[in-house]
Design a protein around this nucleic acid. Structure first.
Lengths: 154, 154
DNA sequence: GGATATTCAGACAAGATTGTTTTATATTGT
DNA sequence: ACAATATAAAACAATCTTGTCTGAATATCC
């Protein structure tokens, strides 16, 4: 309804990384297996996040990806600005290129307060909060945890 | 950020139709010109809305499309359920296939109230309200009204 | 009633974008 | 040197958007 697959994978991966000990790099391969997503595709996404200064990446043996900052410093908005592009927060529901308070589409003043709720949510929600939720065991990060039962997926 | 181009065109077109006298059918060609959108694509969208019982369509001379009900009966939600599909309202932010109160992703309980705001907006907003807003002259339905100044578009 | 112009309907395909996979290359620790 | 790993680039596939063409239906004109 809202996010591209790329963004969904990015958020899932970073939440998973935030649940892991921050000292050692996490392998792309491991993340992909845990989430049940295609590893090469995820690698591309992580590389992009590294370019956007959200992750460190280390090559070679003992390499992998690390969060650049603590999970309490990284919000969903930080991630989505990289994966969806900077225009992410500015868009008009009807797709008009120009839609501001002055030149508004008929939905503008109804949509703005709702959009603010979305943006607030994305800016308030840190990786740390989400990681803790996952660690509590009450919430799941993927449809098929640990990629068991792959053959039964719909 | 939220809607596909198809949905955006559909909403724009129906708002425009709601501003027109309901007695005579509106031509796809005229709507497309007014909104500055590709006519063949719009035609398919309108055909789909006709199949979904939101529009009447008439072939031949004096043909065109008509709203099936008054603009006060048609909400944005009615339109989007046709253009985005019935799963539109149920989706999980992280893209999980299963994400309910029982099997929740870590964003679920933060997202649900925001999603409710969106759904409420879509269900409250009728074509009639939007058509009146446009008729007041204070709001615009397309980036380039009447497709004037096409050559200056960005 | 038949010819004609107008308009929607539907098939098909081109182009753009996004998502996915494959292959090759560079870097690092042992 | 070797093995493990990220990086890069390219190939492939799917989906979304747009365009073209042909056919079918309908009102109007003669």
């Amino acid at each position: 309804m809202i996010l591209s697959r790329t963004s969904q994978y990015a958020v899932q991966a970073l939440i998973y990384m935030a649940t892991q000990p921050s000292a050692t790099p996490v392998l792309n391969k491991d993340i992909a297996a845990k989430l049940g997503v295609p590893a090469p595709y995820l690698a591309k996404i992580l590389q992009n996040l590294a370019k956007g200064n959200l992750l460190f990446s280390f090559r070679g043996r003992l390499g992998g990806f690390c969060l650049r900052e603590g999970g309490d410093k990284i919000t969903l908005m930080h991630i989505l600005l990289l994966t969806e592009g900077p225009a992410f927060t500015q868009s008009c529901l009807l797709g008009l290129k120009e839609c501001s308070d002055e030149t508004a589409c008929p939905l503008h003043f109804r949509w703005v307060p709702v959009k603010k709720k979305i943006i607030d949510l994305l800016q308030e929600t840190t990786l740390e909060k989400l990681a803790k939720a996952v660690e509590s065991g009450k919430y799941r990060l993927a449809d098929v945890p640990g990629q068991l039962f792959e053959q039964f997926k719909v």
